[in-house]
């Protein structure tokens, strides 16, 4: 079955950790550079995230995401470096444009924060299977309905895409142009919408009924077929992360 999840199945310590730990790490990656806004701390955080990604054997998988992010960050660097109010120290000049030190420094801190946040999300997405994440969250008390929505999306969207392909093929078999320049493609798109959208609505109604008769809305407490996956060091990791964030706040307030 096709999958739209980015999860990459590898053997690593990162893969065997509780998904909740990775959520804590995301909080860590967001807050630490904000609490301690020096460029050294940001660099250290990025280095840590990258080390984790490499240890999870998924670093190469992050490249497409970073491609997009770095392109956006390039515009930030240019604009801040050239036009930030308070720019004073000239770094270099290229034609009519002057690059300033202050703006560049500010832009680098900003960029490092973004890279750090993106990498922390990548750690979660690339090394955690969606069903494990949902399972952990539901057992922690998240509503099973929200859990269902998250985990079913990963299966039902590929099914919808397969249905769409079948409909495209059927229309092509009846002589509709579906390939060629942009105009042809756009025109081929509209006849698809009817069957795909209406079909999904009908399917959704039937699936809702099927869920309903299987006690989806039952009030009784839920039980589980599979035992909760046993993760090691979860408490240590989670308290450790909280402790470091706490220390960072204290350090910031003291200095």
């Amino acid at each position: 079955m096709k999958s739209i999840s980015l999860y990459t199945d590898r053997k690593s310590v990162l893969h065997s950790l509780d998904p909740i730990n990775k959520l804590y790490y995301i909080a860590f990656a967001i807050f630490i550079p904000i609490i301690l806004p020096s460029i050294e701390i940001s660099l250290a955080c990025v280095a840590l995230s990258f080390t984790l990604l490499i240890s999870g054997k998924v670093f190469t998988k992050t490249m497409p995401a970073f491609g997009v992010v770095l392109f956006t960050l390039l515009t930030v660097i240019l604009i801040q470096g050239l036009f930030r109010p308070g720019n004073a120290t000239i770094l270099f000049q290229a034609g009519p444009f002057t690059m300033y030190r202050e703006g560049l420094l500010y832009a680098s801190i900003l960029s490092l924060r973004v890279i750090n946040i993106v990498s922390s999300f990548m750690i979660l997405v690339l090394t955690t299977s969606p069903s494990d994440l949902v399972d952990s969250l539901v057992r922690k008390g998240m509503s099973p309905r929200i859990g269902y929505v998250i985990s079913s999306v990963f299966q039902i969207i590929p099914e919808m895409m397969a249905a769409m392909e079948t409909i495209t093929d059927a229309q092509r078999a009846r002589g509709m142009e579906t390939e060629g320049n942009l105009r042809v493609r756009i025109r081929a798109f509209f006849p698809l919408l009817g069957p795909v959208v209406l079909g999904s609505l009908i399917n959704t109604k039937e699936r809702a009924m099927a869920l309903e008769v299987r006690g989806f809305n039952a009030k009784s407490p839920k039980t589980y077929l599979l035992d909760q996956k046993q993760y090691r060091f979860s408490t240590v990791i989670q308290w450790g992360i909280l402790f470091v964030i706490g220390c960072a706040i204290v350090w910031r307030l003291a200095s």
Binding site: S131, S151, S152, R207
Partner: peptide, 23 residues
């Protein structure tokens, strides 16, 4: 097709869906 919940990964878990809900 429309009776598959779409949130479970094996036949075993799929059959368990209703049982989990009713506890």
């Amino acid at each position: 097709f429309n009776q598959v919940t779409g949130s479970k990964l094996t036949v075993l878990e799929e059959i368990a869906f209703g049982l989990e809900n009713i506890g």
